Simulated scan of single mutants.
Amino acid sequence: MHIRVERRRDKDSGEYFEMVDGLMFKDGFLYKPVSIKSIHTQGIQPSFDELEKFKKPGDDMNGDMSSLNTLFSNRKKGHFMKGDAVIVVKGDLKNLEGWVEKVEDTTVHIRPKISDLPKTLAFNEKELCKYFKPGDHVKVVSGVQEGTTGMVVKVDGHVLIILSDTTKEHIRVFADHVVESSEITTGITRIGDYELHDLVLLDNLSFGVIIRVETEAFQVLKGVPDRPEVVLVKLREIKSKIDRRTSAKDKFNNMVATKDVVRVVEGACKGTQGPVEHIHKGILFIYDRHHLEHAGFICAKAQSCILVGGSTGGRRGNVCTGVLVLLVKKI
């Protein structure tokens, strides 16, 4: 093949490119001018491999702040929670380890691992990254490997090497994309009409959420708020899926719907907090990613919980209370 290649300086950028049939190439990449209006940047989660492809020779992926900033800019609200192990990635206290004590908007208060420092220190959330150690069992919650579970076998700065529960292969992910979890992916998420995390009605009229799918059966966390009760059920023992959208009242008569965040204030799970995944007969199934049992699900009575951000006033049953909550959420 006789392909003519010219080295030419681009008048707009001032950089040199190899020109082939009017196309600009550099370091194996094709460069094309595009309108900024045609580029979508919100909610993009680049994989580790994608970021690695674009790093320049000599760049350290762990210390490359442009790579970290790309990840941090797409963090979801509530990324850090109390109890998370974190490490400082910017500033004078870089590499300081600690645990999250509380989160206020973009400010994260941590308890440092070093005893000589103050009891708590405040950081902007972009100065922190999650921290894990070999042996931790984790779940990937964002990026191309989302849903994968496995054990951390190596920590390389802000990059984790995980042994997948399903494929038994090593995968590389950013620590920022991971949470500690006891959930184990089996590779099976569905049998018949039912899949993982469905709310189901059993043939004895009890109900619960599917927390694990095995080869020929389901593990179901039943709707018993006083104590966690997990049963193994066959497909034929499930009567139907419960799809109804419903709501319930919390301790202060605030209306709670699915995806609302609640805190348990009474009972065995007191102090736990998370979004409501299912509601049935006044029972809430709450997902708390810090709860290492039952795939993170907690069962509690709605009256034993409070809506985070809801009213705590004494005018119980007042219709205005529910309207106020809706308005605040909408804003």
Rank of each mutant, 00 (worst) to 15 (best):
R4I: 15
R7C: 11
D12Q: 09
E15L: 15
M19K: 13
D21W: 11
G22Y: 10
F29W: 14
P33H: 03
V34I: 15
K37E: 05
I39D: 06
I39G: 02
H40W: 01
G43P: 08
Q45K: 08
P46F: 11
D49F: 13
L51E: 07
F54R: 10
K55N: 04
K55G: 03
P57E: 10
D60C: 13
N62V: 04
D64L: 11
M65Q: 09
N69E: 10
T70S: 13
F72L: 12
R75G: 06
G78T: 11
M81E: 12
K82A: 12
K82N: 09
V86K: 07
V88F: 03
V89Y: 05
K90F: 05
D92Q: 14
K94G: 00
V100L: 07
K102P: 01
T106W: 03
P112M: 05
P112A: 04
L117F: 08
L117D: 09
A122R: 07
E125G: 01
Y131N: 11
K133F: 04
K133I: 11
S142E: 06
V144L: 10
T148E: 10
V155Y: 00
G157F: 07
L163Q: 04
S164R: 07
S164E: 11
D165S: 10
D165F: 04
T166P: 02
K168W: 05
I171S: 02
V173E: 12
D176S: 14
D176Q: 14
D176W: 04
V178R: 14
E183L: 08
I184W: 02
T185V: 02
I188V: 09
E195Q: 12
L199G: 00
L201F: 00
G208Y: 00
I211A: 07
V213F: 01
T215E: 05
E216W: 04
F218R: 03
P225H: 05
R227D: 11
R227W: 09
P228T: 12
P228K: 12
K234C: 02
E237W: 01
S240D: 13
S240L: 06
D243W: 00
F252V: 01
F252Y: 15
N253C: 14
V256K: 00
K259L: 10
A268W: 09
C269I: 00
T272I: 06
I283W: 00
L284A: 01
L284K: 03
F285Y: 05
F285G: 03
R289Q: 09
H291G: 00
C305H: 04
G309R: 09
G309A: 08
G310N: 08
C320F: 13
L326Y: 01
L326S: 13
L326H: 06
V328H: 14
